[in-house]
């Protein structure tokens, strides 16, 4: 070590050199790819990318297309319900497991297990469970409740909730594990102090523990939201966008435009809109988390 203080840029030299390929790839692939996509969304590209400018035509057509509007609406419904329920269910499960119960490991594994399955498998499994001819409806009718009706995937008005059930089943476990880690990070003295003061447990959770878990909540939020925006495989496996177009989502619209309709321009316009959505969520978060204090690293 030399006596002069090395400049910040050259600290951990070998680590930084090792990171260069990754940084270059990330810049080239992600940033480069993003710019390329946005540029070509203003062209009339069909099967192959072509620089034939059409201004905002692709965006005008996009927002005049019913399928896209239905997709956005579905994403909003799915996203809102998913966020709400996944946090409530995940947190409650974590709080229950945190009561020093027996067989904690087993229960935790069982609840986390669905997350280890791909969306394709999840989608197919729930397609069968919700199928009126051999799923829940048939079993309940077999118990004697002959008029029982439960076929969300075959009713256009509620099909998206059928997808939501599968999404919750798959995602709740992960949220639970993250929350559990957060709960374990709370100092036991906080609980003792709250008990001494005679504060009921639910109030302690709501007013003391949850605010202390803010970093965990924010990480979970970002994970869940990005998962929601890019939802595609669950839909394809479970409903294929049907019945009709009632469970279409933006990512599927992008794929269909690009590869089925041979209309790259339209697909790029739709994916640019999706990028905007993600940016609207991620940028405020990044500013909140990493902005402000410089001594954070």
């Amino acid at each position: 070590m030399s006596s002069a203080r090395p400049s910040r840029l050259f600290r951990n030299k070998s680590a930084k050199i090792a990171a260069i390929p990754m940084i270059v790839t990330a810049l080239f692939v992600f940033v480069g790819g993003t710019i390329w996509t946005v540029v070509y969304s203003f062209t009339k590209s069909g099967l192959l990318p072509r620089l034939k400018w059409v201004g905002l035509d692709q965006y005008e057509r996009l927002w005049a297309t019913r399928k896209w509007l239905v997709s956005i609406e579905n994403l909003a419904i799915y996203g809102f319900c998913m966020l709400l329920f996944v946090f409530v269910i995940g947190f409650i499960l974590a709080a229950l497991i945190d009561q020093k119960i027996r067989f904690e490991n087993t229960i935790r594994t069982v609840i986390l297990y669905p997350y280890a399955l791909s969306f394709v498998v999840t989608g197919l499994v729930w397609q069968w469970i919700l199928n009126p001819e051999f799923g829940v409806q048939k079993i309940v009718r077999g118990w004697g409740w002959e008029s029982f009706n439960f076929d969300p995937l075959y009713n256009a008005d509620i099909a998206i909730y059928g997808v939501l059930i599968a999404g919750l089943w798959q995602g709740s476990g992960l949220v639970m594990v993250l929350m559990l880690a957060g709960l374990r990070g709370i100092d036991q003295d906080v609980w003792k102090a709250a008990r001494v003061d005679g504060i009921p447990a639910w109030k302690t959770y709501l007013l003391i523990v949850i605010p202390m878990m803010r970093p965990v909540f924010i990480t979970t939020l970002v994970l869940v939201v990005t998962g929601i925006v890019k939802i595609y495989d669950l839909i394809v496996a479970q409903t294929g966008g049907g019945p009709g177009i009632s469970t279409e989502v933006p990512a599927k619209y992008v794929y269909d435009s690009m590869f089925r309709a041979n209309n790259l321009g339209q697909g790029f316009a739709a994916s640019t809109m999706m990028l905007l959505t993600v940016a609207l969520v991620v940028i405020p978060w990044a500013i909140l988390e990493f902005g402000g204090s410089k001594n954070h690293d």
């Binding site: 069909g46 019945p243 177009i245």
Partner: peptide
């Protein structure tokens, strides 16, 4: 194929709804 896909979307909706 673009027009074809738009027609497919229209009819998938028409027949389901």
């Amino acid at each position: 194929p673009d027009t074809n896909d738009q027609l497919n979307t229209l009819f998938v909706e028409f027949f389901a709804d």
